[in-house]
Simulated scan of single mutants.
Amino acid sequence: MAPRALLFLAVVAGCACSAQQSPAAAPAGSAAAPQASTASNGMRVETLAHGLSHPWSVALLPEGGFLVTERDGRLRHLDAQGRIGEPIAGVPTVFAQGQGGLLDVVLAPDYKTSHRLCLSYAEPGDDGTAGTAVSCGTLNDNALANMRVVYRQAPKLSGSSHFGSRLVFDGHGHLFITQGERTYRPLAQQLDKLQGKLVRLNEDGSIPRDNPFVGRKDARPEIWSYGHRNMQGLALDPRTGTLWESEHGPMGGDEINLPQPGKNYGWPIITYGIDYSGLKISESVGTAAPGMEQPHHYWKKSPGLSGLAFYTGRPGNAWNDSLFLGSLAESNLIRLTLKGNTIVGEERLLQDQGARIRDVRVGNDGQVYVLTDEEDGKLLRLTPPGMK
């Protein structure tokens, strides 16, 4: 198949598009003109901000307002009205090519007193190589201080795809880090490499003693689970503390997993997707194999999953016990209805926006905050049907 056709198929299947020239930074103080609409299902949609350059992640600040990462390497503070501040100083240098750049931002559990946060990003290496990395430090006014790298994917590789990456503090002193296999598919099965692995660290970057591969000479001790492709969604279920993870399949086979320590989730040996050429994945033996876990849920047609958030603890609310996932390829927000851990329904929202949904977070106010991954990226606020 011609290269152009392959590129088109990759985009349709949900991979982030090749890097384009970034637009000029949004001017400080700019905010969206007040815009609101009510969807046919009764959901209210408001545009809080626009003019963000391919925003990747949003963190909701306890004092109000937001931190937003832009893929080309800027971290922005937005106030509660959506006014965009000057870029925050002290952000690590990023590899801003293809799917690389500045990725996730998460607040530490003690952020209210420490102002500590962590960033994941594609870190440049020698000779054009790159790998997923995580740095943590403190936010003081409009600058980051005491930034320290707590994780580096090794080895760094050439190419500009499949960096992941989402971060989750588990509330028990640990930090989970997702990443991709950098399109080097066999590495996802190699325990002496970090590509295609879910990693678990102590908050200071040290290795937890109870990680599943600690003490094995043939495996990296950081690894929690393996056999993953490109993980771009990660969240704890507030009801149970269970970790949920979502990842891109190839052409088809996007999946949700509930990753357990030491388990193998199969990529590329088992998959429900096919190659972008339309052929079978060359390493695959099918959809099942001994010693490999089945996905908790999968899609035959790839939505291009990115961002994942739970909506729970609000009895009587139309969205209570839901799981939200961003969809890049199909340009919508997926709402899954949960009964325990079982997915019993699916609804697609924001179809009329025509925008790639990169991140989704749920606020303490019961509203849902969504980022669109566009040159003129937006921060949207969704109010559930019936909520005033």
Rank of each mutant, 00 (worst) to 15 (best):
D321G: 09
M292N: 02
G65A: 06
L305Q: 04
F169Q: 09
N230E: 13
A16T: 11
T183M: 00
G65D: 03
G82L: 02
I357K: 01
L194W: 06
Q367R: 15
Y272V: 04
Y111T: 10
I357L: 08
Q99P: 03
K263W: 05
N41A: 08
G14E: 07
G125K: 09
A2M: 09
V68R: 03
C15G: 15
E347D: 00
H54P: 00
Q97V: 12
P259T: 02
L67Y: 03
F324N: 00
P238G: 11
S331V: 12
T342M: 01
L333Y: 00
V106L: 08
A10C: 07
L157Y: 09
K217F: 03
I269W: 00
A28G: 14
E203W: 10
Y311I: 07
E375W: 00
Q189E: 13
R358V: 06
L157D: 05
N230T: 04
K280F: 14
F324G: 00
D359H: 03
E283D: 13
R74M: 11
G180K: 01
S18W: 13
N332S: 02
L167Y: 01
A289F: 10
V199F: 01
G100N: 07
L75K: 08
H228Y: 12
S18K: 10
V149K: 14
L198F: 02
V12G: 14
